[in-house]
Design a protein around this nucleic acid. Structure first.
Lengths: 334, 334
DNA sequence: CTGAAAGCGCTTACAG
DNA sequence: CTGAAAGCGCTTACAG
């Protein structure tokens, strides 16, 4: 392993000078710099970032933390983040942390263990203590899709999205709606699922329709296959469903559609469905799925760019909240 | 920031003892250990991983490096990796490195700069020098979907997959085939695209068909929209195409199909198409897309598990090559 | 303009 | 069984 000392020796200067020269300090002669650079190149020297980080206190890594990264939601945001990285040419690196439900524990370790300079949370709600911890340690925290008072919150208006979706179903003449919703394995619904449920119920109420609570169906992991299972459950236990709002997203909705087709239920004649997320597949499904578009890519992109500004000191870190508006994309499934 | 010294002070021992106690050294009394642990907990002590890594020489991070992470290919593998992480409960962390074409530079820095203990490359072909560098530094390297003599290579038999796809088109009566292939922005085709091209051409040859080189269409970024563009180009410049092998993958194939539908070209009556990858959307497209399935998820999962074994010393690192076989999934697009 | 010294927070022989 | 010392590779005041 070639260190700064080896470079110093070859260049005939002290290791202090090497360090200064490499960081392009103004107090070093152009001459000496050249010598040092030549020596570094010759030895193929690369600074040990662990040592550098230890003393500087900056790791140059941005932590992206989520319960898991397997769903389209996280992947879309990740793509946005990547796009940002490409266009910014920064020296930050992205570190993925899956919390496996142990949110606070993982978050504490990231901050106190110096794993990252800042974090972007995806659909994770940090506790008050964690938010304080990050704030005390000057570690910026951007929270996407969850509430986090005291941090930077980036949320989508899920209530409104769900309201639009439901109203669209109602306006097309549907009267017996069903709700498909996720997070059945959590203690309580995540923020976005909760808001979608509220928006759904409110729209029904506002239109003077009745709603049978039996028509709520839960899924856990947002898998395609869960949609297929849900459709079967609907046929068995649901009551006269003629419209579905799949708050659990388009992938699950796709599963429902496929199973409906298998069972020869015509969409949208006998059954209408609206999804959520408007992922790429949504327009390819047959019939093309009406959905609520969320600017996930854009959100990821902006979150990363903002984090970099925060870390570079180009923006002051102060808690605030930004709400993105969703958009109804009508296709043929209603 | 609370350090080992603070814990030592509170526990009334030396910081050496704290370090030993925390790492559960057998030479420390249960009594002292308890005292130390209590103090650490009280102070909410978390070891600084930078310091720890600096002296131990282990970073506990696994680098995943790719040109970019935006395509389904990388995402599928990433999902597999994540699945592995969940089931293994290790303390390794995943660091994403996008090389933006500067492969060797990034790879050198990861190794020499101590950014990771081992790397998994996705569709990146490291130079001989890089392979030697990693080997000299005892930094395991697993290369997926590219050749890398001297490292661990995990590849899919793309030649065979392409051959099967093409033969399937031919057997269904298609005579004027087109090839859609990626990487037009690279100096030369990536390994998998190259092999697919060869398999395609060989199948045509073996079946005594002629092939018009005008019927090769290039794309760059594996985007859906490129598929739409390609179809337009085909209509303008292609000659009598009745079958397409889309070596560029299912997402691009989906774009082609959508555009064909827009232009009222019936699939598969007037035009057949076979994709590659068999991503989830493939079965949802209308018509469902015949494709070549690659076990990407499994590959990612195994690669990670193997990397951990390598790093834990449970498997000896020696260059070898593993080939996964693809599988033809027939649906209705042919 | 350059170098000797101290220090970042930890681990690991080595004494005792 | 525990502690003083040296050291990991770097940066950053501080002298000169």
């Amino acid at each position: 392993m070639v260190t700064i000392k080896d470079v110093a020796q070859l260049a005939g200067v002290s290791h202090t000078t090497v360090s200064l020269a490499l960081r392009n300090s103004p107090s070093i002669t152009a001459d000496t710099k050249a010598k040092v650079l030549a020596a570094a190149k010759k030895l193929n020297y690369h600074p040990n970032h662990l040592a550098r980080s230890l003393v500087s206190g900056k790791t140059y890594v941005i932590g992206v933390v989520a319960n898991f990264f397997s769903s389209t939601f996280e992947m879309e945001i990740l793509k946005g983040i990547e796009q940002s990285i490409r266009s910014m040419e920064t020296e930050y690196t992205i570190n993925l942390f899956g919390t496996l439900e142990k949110n606070d524990q993982v978050l504490t370790d990231i901050c106190l263990g110096k794993h990252a300079d800042g974090v972007i949370l995806l659909s994770i709600s940090p506790s008050k203590e964690i938010i304080k911890l990050y704030s005390d340690n000057n570690c910026p925290m951007i929270v996407i899709d969850e509430k986090a008072e005291g941090a930077i919150e980036i949320v989508m208006d899920n209530y409104h999205g769900a309201y639009m979706a439901t109203e669209h179903l109602i306006n097309s003449g549907r009267k017996n709606l069903a709700l498909v919703i996720g997070d059945s394995n959590r203690e309580e619904l995540g923020l976005s699922q909760k808001e979608r449920k509220e928006g759904f119920l409110q729209a029904i109420k506002d239109h003077d329709l009745s709603f049978n609570p039996r028509n709520i169906f839960y899924i856990e992991d947002y898998y395609f296959e869960e949609g297929q299972v849900v459709f079967k459950r609907m046929q068995r236990y649901g009551s006269d469903i003629d419209g579905i709002f799949c708050a659990a997203g388009d992938i699950v909705a796709a599963g429902i559609i496929l199973e409906a087709k298998t069972e020869h239920v015509n969409i949208p004649r006998e059954l209408s469905i609206v999804g959520y997320d408007d992922v790429m597949s949504s327009s390819l499904i047959d019939p093309p799925l009406t959905s609520i578009r969320q600017p996930l890519f854009q959100i990821g992109k902006n979150a990363y760019a903002r984090m970099v500004r925060l870390l570079e000191g180009n923006e002051e870190y102060k808690p605030n909240k930004f709400v993105y508006e969703p958009q109804l994309i009508t296709r043929s499934s209603v």
